[in-house]
Amino acid sequence: MPIKTDSPLARRIAAFIFLFFIFGLTFWVLSPFFASLAWAGILAYVTWPLHQRLCRHLPGRANLAALLMTLGVAATLLLPLLWVMFTVVVDVAAASATLKQLAIHGLPPLPAGVRAWPGGEWIAAQYQRVQADPAWVRAQVDALGLTDAAQLKALAGGVGRNAAKFGLAVFALFFLYRHGDSVLTQFRRVATRWLGAAARGYIQAVGVTVRAVVFGIVLTALAQGVLAGLGYWVAGIDAPALWGAITALVSLIPFVGPVVWIGLSLGLLVHGETQAALGLFLWGALVVSWVDNLIRPLVISGPTRIPFLLVFLGVLGGINAFGLIGLFLGPVLLAVSVAIWREWLVHARSV
């Protein structure tokens, strides 16, 4: 039986197709900017209490309060990044020259005193095996990309694109400060209409998780980078700012940060600087890792009431699926899933 074009069913189908078409095109248009908008939303949410306090000191001047907050957040993030980038550029040049010498001349000889250590004969045998294969050493150096001008240019291009995304995020941040209350209210109304009263719990889970991940992962990684960089500087590591920045980036992934300072400690050991190697290893194990292994689980698992294992898997899976923004999206998705699961359990008990 054919469907009449003026029937309610036909109108519903037409409306559904129209909405699907419009929202699909909207998603397509905005898709290149999702990462910047997500970063702006995260920054706005985390700093919202400061914005509210500033608004109370500037009544009736919402635009000025939003502008001051935007400039403050941008300066807080941009100035340290510029300092790190400027320092890293100098350190990358030094590291590139060192790696080129290593690729040409091979690994330096192992200090004679190493054989007297417990297990020293095994260490010396493994080192000599690697030292006897200069092609493998050159391949590992080339894999780092610090000796290839084309890869360095590509890296610079990636930095430029990320800088543009950061600028867009800051631009969007002003409007989120200015209209954040209205946007959140509208979102709550739509979510409540479609999901019922449970939407409030889901929104609360998202907010708590974002704040916990920011303070538990990002700030912990920054603290690890600063502490590790200080240890590298004291131990006499070349390019300490570069290695500190690398440690901070790597530490965003739980339990991966020690790879950097353990590798540098072994490098010092190979060059005969036993005291510096031991000091750096102890600094990393007792100070840098202490920040990661103690503070991160407490800060994340406490407020979210989610097992740290799930947060850990959410971070890894989020990075794999969405890139750096997946640091937040992965745990947030798991937090909402856990909230839904717990709600089902409550309903199951009440039945």
Rank of each mutant, 00 (worst) to 15 (best):
G330K: 03
V336E: 03
T274G: 02
L269T: 05
G323N: 09
L333Y: 00
L268P: 08
H271F: 02
P254C: 04
I246S: 07
F312S: 04
L280P: 15
L310T: 14
L310C: 11
F328H: 04
G257L: 11
S251V: 05
L309Q: 07
F322C: 01
S265F: 11
P258K: 01
L327A: 03
A277I: 13
L298D: 04
L333N: 02
A277M: 13
T304I: 04
I246N: 07
A276G: 09
P258I: 06
V288E: 04
E273L: 10
P303T: 09
P303G: 02
L266E: 04
R296S: 14
P303S: 02
L280M: 13
S265L: 07
L329D: 06
E273Q: 11
L310D: 12
L269R: 01
G244Y: 06
L286C: 06
S251H: 11
P303I: 06
P303V: 03
V256Q: 12
G257A: 13
A276C: 11
G317R: 10
G317D: 06
L266I: 10
F281W: 05
L242W: 15
L294W: 06
R305S: 15
L294Q: 09
G323H: 05
L334Q: 10
N320R: 15
L333R: 01
N293C: 05
L327Q: 08
L310R: 09
A321C: 10
L242K: 07
V287W: 12
S289C: 00
W261Q: 07
G284E: 03
V260W: 11
T304Q: 11
V311C: 12
G302H: 13
I295E: 14
R296Q: 15
V270Q: 14
L282H: 05
L329R: 08
G244N: 12
V260R: 06
F322H: 11
H271E: 15
V336C: 08
L329C: 04
P297S: 03
L316H: 12
I262P: 00
R296C: 15
F308N: 10
N320S: 14
L280F: 02
L313D: 06
I319W: 09
V270L: 02
I300Y: 03
G318H: 02
V260H: 10
L334I: 15
L316E: 08
V260N: 04
G302Q: 09
L324N: 08
W243V: 07
H271W: 08
L268I: 14
W283N: 09
W290L: 08
V259H: 03
L294G: 02
L242M: 14
V291G: 05
L286S: 14
G272K: 00
P254E: 14
F255R: 00
G263V: 06
A285Q: 11
T247S: 11
L242C: 08
A248V: 01
F322R: 01
I300V: 13
G317F: 02
V260D: 14
N320D: 07
L252A: 07
V259R: 05
L313R: 12
F312M: 15
F328S: 09
L333M: 09
L242D: 10
S265M: 07
T274K: 12
G263M: 12
L252E: 01
P258A: 02
P254N: 00
L313A: 13
I295H: 09
W283C: 04
G330V: 10
G318L: 05
G267H: 12
F312Q: 06
